[in-house]
Design a protein around this nucleic acid. Sequence first.
DNA 1: CTGTTAGCGCGTTCAA
DNA 2: TTGAACGCGCTAACAG
Lengths: 368, 368
Amino acid sequence: MSQVAARAGVSVMTVSYTYNRVDRVSAESREKVLQAAAELGYAGPDPAARSLRYGNTRTLGVILGEHLTYAFDNPQAVTFLAGIAEVCADRGYGMLIVPIAGGAEDSLRVSEVAVDAFIIWTTTDDDPVLDAVSGSGRPAVIHGGPVRAGFKLVSIDNRAAAFAMGMKTFAGAHRPAILSFPLDSSRKTVLAAGIDPDTVRFPVTRQRLLGYRDAIEALGLDWNDVVVGATATNNEGEARSLAETMFALEQPIDAIAAMSDDLALGVLDAATSAQLTVPETLSVSGWDNSRASALHQLSSVAQNLRAQGALAARLALGEEPGLAPDDWSVVVRASTGEPATQRTEHGNTPIRRMGANREPFVRSDGLS
Amino acid sequence: MSQVAARAGVSVMTVSYTYNRVDRVSAESREKVLQAAAELGYAGPDPAARSLRYGNTRTLGVILGEHLTYAFDNPQAVTFLAGIAEVCADRGYGMLIVPIAGGAEDSLRVSEVAVDAFIIWTTTDDDPVLDAVSGSGRPAVIHGGPVRAGFKLVSIDNRAAAFAMGMKTFAGAHRPAILSFPLDSSRKTVLAAGIDPDTVRFPVTRQRLLGYRDAIEALGLDWNDVVVGATATNNEGEARSLAETMFALEQPIDAIAAMSDDLALGVLDAATSAQLTVPETLSVSGWDNSRASALHQLSSVAQNLRAQGALAARLALGEEPGLAPDDWSVVVRASTGEPATQRTEHGNTPIRRMGANREPFVRSDGLS
DNA sequence: CTGTTAGCGCGTTCAA
DNA sequence: TTGAACGCGCTAACAG
């Protein structure tokens, strides 16, 4: 910039004004500056120097769980991102995906990143990245959990939603099962009965397990008999093989609540192969009310992740909107054997709402 | 940092060394510094100041087409992003999504963003954002096109791929049609015959139209009779209604090549409603070989967008890998009426490869 | 309308 | 092993 000033025969401030306060510069000077800039290939004020000077970056940092590689394979995370992007585009804020790779250097990355605030897609309770975010002293909004002092939370009440869907899915079942997200960071595939939800370090997964357990108990069934299958990733194929194993058990499973539509679709697939009729001999439910769930008449928990992303972004920007702008609902379709009380046309599925939040949608404190 | 130094009773440089060159500081001083930092709530060197000093940001800028809002709804763009993310996570680079909202301020945003290089998801030939990127003087890699001096290009040969798929889709057809991405930035829904591909400002769309036209002509059909439908977005529902219109034409369409699997699935849907049998009375093909395409026995052009994203990131980082690491192929399934020469099991579909690139995969010059 | 001064927070250079 | 000086490029505040 000083070079431009020299070449234009003006002071540095005139150059600065040319880019920032056009009205404070005479047309004549402006011309000279622009000319000199063009000749020197000067592209305007350096963003890094500006950030330093202004003390802000006009950028939001987004931390996508424990490992970036899986994040984009997860349609839920992507929808959430779309919501953030919407707000960022509107406000002219950059959206910086923080390079989290599951290693020790992740914390370093968090503190090395030039952003004004963080938005965190749900991770484990004890993820060291969360400490790094706290330590950075910058505002943070977390989606799903864990709840942390100083972090704002955007989440539906997963426990209540799982309970509501569990009541639909497990009604009349004798041998219910659950298809879960990973139970810990090792992401090992697991198939076991009587799992203690409180040992699970992923808050969203834990809350959903607790909700399903609530339903199991409300229906007079024994949680210790309930088989929980956990897949390494949110993958339909993996769900299919896990479901096949479930069908081959001595007392075959007759109801499966899955934590995502992808997993549930894998179950439907396995059911077809095993010649089980849905919902007569197998009741199935998913989560997130995807297009595919509508297409396959799969009952599913609906929530608006895009709106949640947008809300998280507004909170991160300190815009502090009102609370509870969104909610969850249970969409009942044929897969859980309810009488179809509504037309469920392909691509135009009316949604039946039921259940209500026990907790406010946005919290900045509380227990998980 | 100077405050920390004062409190620790050392010089500023000792503090700096504590964070950057641990070996140049005695354990004793280090202790004092860390102590002081903790007391003051100092979170380590400021990223913005660091970028200024180092002259780089360790961040890649990603420009997702003309408007950020649509980008995350596009599974192809998301897959490409996943590839970029993979490389960024590995190298510890941030990935900054530039807030493009379709307005005049977009160019400003590009120059205001603190990144070392840009990766651009395909846009129109005349998008002013491209000028802003050029003007910024930072390296840029563009996916799909347009080709520009100074920009590296990562792309398959869309024209060749469209030709190959056109030959399959239109073989034996009397009344072929094309379901296209938008023809211009207005994104108006269009249904017309004899469209001149060269008027289309989206390079990828243009190349594919050219390739389909090549096939039409190679098959002895008249391009002026070929109906092209263009949807406003990559949306299955929109494709369905456009297909329905096509089926209602005086001379009903008997072959449709679609530029995405989503669009093709909309066609299949409409065909079912119209009681058309595929492929006997209607031949259909899609693009990108999605899971859904395999599920619905839809012929599709396969390409590895994730690998292309990773390649684009490596090129942007100046790692200059070898050329042509990937390729496209035509996956023939039942929807184009070829005799099924392979088992096409659900979720485990073998891919028949055919066709070859006419151009190298990576180019940094050439015509579009 | 334009110029001068000062400092954002850091790290390289050179000296001690 | 540590310190002092300097400048990375920019802009707020205050002259003029």
